[in-house]
C-alpha cells in the first residue's frame, strides 16, 4: 500500500504540473527562394602575324579566343645607334607615351590593321645583307573591363599575353 500511496502522489504531482502548462500556438508563415548566376569567361588568346620587307616589320594581331574581346598595344626597342619609325598605312593605331594602341576593341576572330615598324639607320650608314640588328618588339593584350555605365576600358597593369621578338 505504501507503493500505491507513492504512485498516487506522483500522479497527482504530474497532473498538477500539466494543468499549468500554457497552450501551444502555431503561426502562419511561408517562404520562397530563387537563385541564378553566370560563368566568367576570362581566357583570351592572340596570334601575331609578321612579314618583313624593306627593313620593315608589317605586323597584325589576331584575337583567336572564342568569347573574350581584348585591347592590344605594341612597341619596339632597339639599341641607341638605330631608331624605329612606326606607321599605320590603313589607320587604326595611335601612339601614346611610346606605345602604339589599337583604336578599337578587338572582338573574337578579328585581326588588327597593319602596323609597320621600320628600322632607321644613321646618316651615312648603309645596311648590308647579313648585318644583325637588335630590335625587340613587344605586343600586349588585356581583357576589356567596363565601368558601371557599361563603357569599356583597359587595365594595362593586368596584361594577359606579352610577346617579345628579337631580330
Amino acid at each position: 500500500m505504501k507503493k500505491a500511496s507513492i504512485c498516487a502522489a506522483l500522479l497527482a504531482a504530474v497532473l498538477t504540473v500539466c494543468a499549468s502548462l500554457p497552450a501551444a500556438w502555431g503561426y502562419f508563415t511561408t517562404y520562397t527562394q530563387a537563385k541564378g548566376g553566370y560563368p566568367l569567361y576570362l581566357g583570351q588568346e592572340t596570334e601575331i602575324h609578321e612579314d618583313f620587307s624593306d627593313w620593315t616589320k608589317h605586323v597584325t594581331i589576331e584575337n583567336t579566343s572564342e568569347l573574350s574581346p581584348v585591347f592590344v598595344r605594341a612597341r619596339g626597342f632597339t639599341d641607341s645607334s638605330h631608331s624605329l619609325t612606326y606607321s599605320a598605312p590603313e589607320g587604326g593605331w595611335h601612339e601614346e607615351e611610346g606605345w602604339w594602341y589599337y583604336d578599337t576593341i578587338l572582338q573574337p576572330g578579328e585581326t588588327t590593321k597593319t602596323l609597320d615598324v621600320k628600322i632607321s639607320f644613321p646618316a651615312g650608314e648603309e645596311p648590308e645583307e647579313g648585318d644583325e640588328f637588335n630590335v625587340v618588339v613587344v605586343y600586349e593584350s588585356t581583357l576589356v573591363l567596363y565601368d558601371e555605365d557599361g563603357n569599356p576600358y583597359a587595365d594595362w597593369s593586368n596584361v594577359l599575353t606579352s610577346y617579345e621578338e628579337g631580330a
Binding site: 508563415t29 517562404y31 527562394q33 530563387a34 548566376g37 553566370y38 566568367l40 569567361y41 581566357g43
Partner: peptide, 13 residues
Amino acid sequence: NGVEFRLEVEANA
C-alpha cells in the same frame, strides 16, 4: 576563368 557567381534570395513572411 570559368568560375560562376551565384546570387540567391530567400523571402520569408
